[in-house]
Write a protein that binds this DNA or RNA. Structure first.
Lengths: 168, 168
DNA sequence: TATTGTTATACTCTATAACTATA
DNA sequence: TATAGTTATAGAGTATAACAATA
């Protein structure tokens, strides 16, 4: 677990190698994500007094101006329904989001951003982008582009294998 | 946020583009990691009744057979000292790890795997590898290798920018 | 009956700060 | 004084299960 270079072949079996390589790739992926996440989380908290899950919820609403149901939020954010209720409660208390009863199905609730919520999210998203760009700026743009593409392939594979429905 | 393809140039400024591209790359990275993490976390819980933080702690010990201090664990796992105390308490109660007072500095404590802890970790690590390999197996090995390399570059950049000390 | 969302509860991980025992 | 580790406390996020209202 200490060779910093790429995969090396040895006398082990192919399958065994593939396992180790997969694990090392996963650990590296996790390490990158954790560092970025910590950085972003800390800044979101200090500068905006918010958290990543709350930011992500707002981001989902921003993508769906007509609103999105609690169940949809639960699926997209991959957290339980009770959880979404709590998050939406908080954001509603801060007047960042609103609940609307759906006219056709009165069990269902559509959540939307308030104008103030939209403005607040825009401010956070702008800074968020700057933080991330700064973290990445030692890598050439072309390399970042390749990375984006390869991660797309990985995501596809993981989704198939894990049976995730997924957003984007 | 819905074009599934790579970056596209438009009339926006270069800087603005770079920001958006960085953000999209970050979101894709986060999405991949989250899916894999959920998958692995769920299996660790159901098959071994453990969690990712606990697995990670054992993994650190496995890399350092002579033991590692509480403070070192705190830095490597990037969590607070109080936290490490709680995790080590649990693992010690399960007889997976041991605390030894350092002979030279009696404030300091070295934590090591017990033989049983080492065996248990080996079992978990082997399955862990299989789960991950399965998730990745829709991507060609050569592409996985490229991804590993690019993530190395990214990690380097992030570490420099975020000022992380880091393990591995 | 099945589905949507809420409530209640509990657990894990986390940070912070006060504390102890050494150095 | 400074450092290593612990304790105590609080808070966020999460899952689960029981529940109400509606379909």
């Amino acid at each position: 677990m200490d060779a910093p270079t790429a995969f090396t072949s040895d006398q082990e079996s192919r399958a065994h190698d593939a396992q180790h390589h997969s694990l090392r790739l996963w650990l590296r992926l996790l390490s990158c994500t954790t560092h970025i996440e910590d950085h972003v989380r800390q800044r979101l908290r200090h500068k905006f007094g918010t958290s990543l899950p709350r930011f992500d919820l707002l981001a989902q609403l921003e993508r769906h101006p007509k609103g999105i149901t609690m169940g949809e939020l639960s699926r997209r954010l991959m957290v339980s329904g009770g959880n979404v209720t709590a998050l939406v409660d908080q954001l509603q208390a801060e007047a960042a989001v609103q609940r609307h009863h759906a006219p056709d199905d009165r069990r269902s609730i559509r959540v939307t951003l308030t104008p103030a919520g939209r403005r607040q999210f825009a401010r956070m998203a702008r800074e968020h982008e700057e933080w991330v760009m700064e973290l990445f700026d030692q890598v050439e743009p072309e390399r970042l582009r390749q990375l984006f593409e390869l991660l797309g392939e990985l995501k596809h594979s993981v989704r198939q294998r894990a049976g995730v429905l997924d957003q984007e």
